[in-house]
């Protein structure tokens, strides 16, 4: 699934339409704890989150997350959008909640890229 197809599934609004939506997504993860994303997510995932600050974009950049979906219609700050645009990371606002989004995407064939925490 690429980001463009994901946007349709989550009925999302792309907040930085200047960014390419062509990236292929290998799977997904849902988290509000950025350390969890950094610790457990494999590259080329979409991140579903309720967190809207600039650190979400930095985390995505470090963890090679290819797109970010904000749940329940949340919109990030202008600085967050500006940074994501600069870094080429699409930001998508979806009206659905985290649970609904995970379900929809999983059903559409997108699987988890979260790894269990092990030492």
């Amino acid at each position: 699934m690429n980001v463009q197809q994901l946007v349709e599934i989550v009925q999302g609004q792309v907040l930085n339409p200047q960014v390419s939506l062509r990236h292929e997504l290998k799977g997904g993860c849902g988290a509000d704890l950025m350390s969890d994303v950094l610790a457990s997510v494999k590259p080329d995932a979409v991140l579903l989150t309720g967190l809207c600050n600039i650190q979400v974009v930095r985390t995505a950049q470090m963890a090679d997350v290819r797109a970010i979906v904000f749940v329940r219609g949340k919109k990030p700050t202008a600085e967050t959008i500006a940074l994501a645009t600069q870094e080429g990371i699409p930001l998508i606002s979806s009206p659905f909640g985290m649970f609904e989004l995970c379900g929809r995407l999983y059903q559409a064939g997108l699987h988890s890229l979260e790894e269990p925490v092990s030492s």
Partner: peptide, 12 residues
């Protein structure tokens, strides 16, 4: 609230 400070940083 920013998604940090859960005590997982050093572990990561």
């Amino acid at each position: 609230d920013m998604g940090f400070g859960a005590g997982m940083g050093l572990v990561n």
